[in-house]
Amino acid sequence: MSPDLAGDAKRALRVGGRVACASAAALLGLRVLNPSLVLHVEVGEHGSRFRRARDGKGRIFPTTSRDHLEFHWSRAGSPQGALPDIVEVVAQAIDCLPPLDALCILDSAREDLPWLDVPPKLADAEFARLLDRLSQRGRDIASRSSTLSQAVGETVARERFREAGIVAEPQAALPGGYFADLLIGDRLIFECEGYSAHGGDKAFENDRARMAFLRACGYIVLNFSHKQVVDDWDSVLSTVQLVMRRGLHLNHAL
């Protein structure tokens, strides 16, 4: 076993498989809404001799290990390598996780913003290959994904707005060469702010200048933290709906 392998990959190999699903997504650098409290492990369909993750000893059984292991059964025989490819990882997440959790991982994999000088982890050809292997439920989830999400909070807000019947456009172009995390109607900018992205002095000053300029242009700007979006959505939605009821998200309100 290579000493360079991450902890969860080593633990999965000790069990008798390889790391999978949300556990593998985290190792691939994908954004995970709810970090898994259990280790997801891909094993062969007919596998039966599994060992403890912590030391590779003893014998465990899938039916009695659900409090710390989630088994994914591969029909292609015993999985090879320490980590599945990204198509396999995302497919596992879509099949296994709640839709919103799966969507956060898929958005992260597909992130492809024009100002980023890095290719998406899941390119268009791989996305097409992913769609071919998904169930109808999985394709429905994938159809709601976007290449324009930069954070879990943005994905969560966009999806929850959709559920509330509100169209929120991701990374909408604004005057001054700026972009909105989400734009509702013509004039309501919704910003989801994480601590790391806005924590430095320069980022803080740039954000203040950006917000002042956009407000001067007549935009309504609502700023929420990642924690508010994820953990206090009812309050966030109520605030947005209050603005919308007054028509302030539309051009004619100016």
Rank of each mutant, 00 (worst) to 15 (best):
S2K: 03
P3D: 14
D4L: 13
D4I: 14
L5N: 10
G7M: 10
D8T: 02
K10F: 02
K10E: 03
A12D: 13
R14C: 01
R14V: 01
G17S: 10
A24P: 06
A25M: 13
A26W: 03
V32G: 14
L37M: 07
H40R: 06
V41E: 08
S48T: 09
R49W: 00
G56R: 12
G58Q: 08
G58D: 02
R59I: 04
R59L: 02
F61G: 04
P62E: 05
R66N: 13
W73E: 06
S78R: 14
V87G: 01
V89C: 10
C96Q: 14
L100T: 03
L100G: 04
D101K: 08
C104H: 12
S108L: 09
S108H: 14
A109K: 04
D112I: 08
D112G: 02
P114N: 07
V118H: 05
P120G: 01
P120C: 03
A125T: 12
A128G: 01
D132R: 08
D132H: 07
R133M: 08
R133Y: 02
S135K: 00
A142G: 06
R144C: 12
T147F: 05
T147C: 10
S149M: 03
Q150S: 15
V152M: 09
R158G: 09
R160T: 10
A172L: 05
L174W: 03
G177A: 00
G177D: 02
G177H: 00
Y178R: 08
F179R: 15
A180T: 02
L188I: 11
F190H: 03
S196E: 15
S196G: 01
K202M: 10
A203H: 05
D207Q: 13
R208I: 12
M211T: 11
A212S: 05
Y219W: 08
Y219I: 11
I220N: 06
F224I: 06
W233L: 07
V240N: 03
M244I: 10
L250T: 12
L254H: 13
